[in-house]
């Protein structure tokens, strides 16, 4: 493979190569065009369109769309308290979910690692919630929060008697509970796979050295599964920042705007109230850039900590 590459490079000026190149081009196109076509139609063009419209006043009511320069962006940053609040709420939500979900998933993965006969059973059980669609999970939990938990509280568990969805201070955590309930199993599967990749001789060596199991975990296991941690944090970070379905199904962002996450804020800007598509597009661009920066930083920082194995 390498030698061929080398010859291609050295002979790149010859006629023979040009003919080969043409043929290669054709086959290249043949293989890439279908994917590219769909990608262009349903991803690329809408994206470019969204960027363009973010600079306009496009809305449902007026038939003329005007170019308004940066004013949408300026409004989002300076004159939209709801957007700012929803962004802060999303950041708070994301920090909690990313940490809890990964710690919990890793913990469960470690516990399962020690089981032999029941390992598969537990894996199956913990992943089960992932089979339920997000919006359906939200509906299921509405039932749990409004009917089941209040009744359960009568058995001396008065802690469970909360306004789970109705109390603005509690509703936020209810959403987190559902997100963690549904998302942890997925991360657990990835952690289990990573843990299985830790060579037994390394763990044994640590034990012979007399390392306690916690130190063993910190100094041997963690570095070995850093790759998986990077991925899981990346996935949860991404998911959490874009959270929509669960909130939509559980509280609709309410009561008031107390649980309005940023994706919901954008959605409502576009599809309710004044139907300001252009402005909503501008806000979604800001969300995009924020997610992009945060995930790039995260992957960059965490990659640096991974050990080559």
């Amino acid at each position: 493979m390498d030698t061929e590459l080398a010859t291609v490079k050295t002979k790149s000026n010859t006629f023979r190569f040009n003919k080969a190149k043409k043929k290669k081009c054709l086959s290249f196109l043949m293989f890439l065009t279908p994917a590219f076509l769909f990608y262009a139609l349903f991803m690329l063009i809408p994206l470019i369109g969204a960027v363009y419209y973010s600079f306009t006043n496009w809305n449902a009511a007026s038939q003329v769309t005007r170019f308004v320069g940066l004013s949408n962006y300026i409004e989002a940053f300076t004159n939209d308290p709801y957007f700012k609040e929803s962004m802060l709420l999303t950041i708070k939500y994301t920090s909690i979910v990313v940490i809890v979900q990964n710690v919990l998933a890793l913990l469960i993965a470690l516990l399962i690692e020690y089981r032999n006969r029941t390992r598969n059973l537990f894996r199956t059980v913990f992943f089960m919630p992932n089979m339920v669609s997000l919006i359906i999970s939200a509906f299921m939990w509405s039932f749990i929060f409004t009917i089941v938990l209040p009744q359960l509280s009568e058995y001396g568990l008065s802690l469970l008697d909360q306004g789970w969805l109705g109390n603005p201070d509690v509703a936020f955590y209810s959403i987190i509970i559902v997100a963690i309930w549904r998302g942890t199993g997925y991360m657990m599967i990835i952690y289990i796979a990573a843990l299985q990749g830790v060579p037994v001789h390394l763990k044994e060596a640590a034990i012979i050295d007399g390392a306690s199991s916690f130190q063993n975990f910190i100094h041997v296991t963690i570095p070995m599964i850093m790759h998986a941690i990077t991925i899981c944090v990346f996935l949860t970070l991404n998911e959490a920042f874009k959270v929509f379905d669960v909130v939509y199904g559980l509280t609709g962002g309410g009561p008031g705007r107390s649980t309005q996450v940023v994706a919901l804020n954008i959605f409502e800007e576009a599809f309710s109230g004044n139907f300001r598509y252009g402005y909503a597009n501008a806000k979604s661009m800001i969300l995009f850039v924020i997610i992009l920066i945060i995930t790039i930083v995260q992957v960059y920082v965490m990659r640096g900590k991974e050990v080559e194995s």
Partner: peptide
């Protein structure tokens, strides 16, 4: 206007919950 009605859905809830 519809937009005002839907805005009132949000802000009345917030008011009734005691935050606005």
């Amino acid at each position: 206007p519809n937009a005002v009605k839907s805005e009132s859905e949000r802000v009345f809830q917030t008011y009734l919950a005691g935050s606005d």
